[in-house]
Amino acid sequence: MNVKNYVRFEFKSLAENVSFARSCVAAFASQLDCTLEDIEEIKVVVSEAVSNSIIHAYENRCNEKIMVMVSIMDDRSLEIVVEDHGKGIEDIEKALEPAFSSDSSRTGLGFTFMKSFMDEMEVFSQPGEGTTVRLKRRFKENEQKAYA
């Protein structure tokens, strides 16, 4: 499987950039000719991953960096990687539990949305070094036509 196209961008850990990140990824993913519903789900997924980096990894410090890389593979799959160099996750298994949040004022649904809207999700994290979330979704050939 080869990378057909990719885009990589980096930005400051500001809440203003959450919308920028999801719009960029959505615009790039639209090359796959997927449905509007698919694009909406991808926007939610990116929003959750980037928000996690800002809130949990960097604890709202706005001078840190977040990297997003999106690739379209030649089998019509989309891969999204979101990387930060924040505090990392001590217990990944616990963090992935539905409705778990280290912050009681939050819903803890971020990873649940990512897992549900994508086909694959991998979380790599090292306390004190950062977290990388890799998400993958496959689109069938002519999926849009099938929905039409």
Partner: peptide
Amino acid sequence: SFIDSSGLGVIIG
């Protein structure tokens, strides 16, 4: 036009 878990958090709260 868009809502994510941050928005849901405000509603639940």
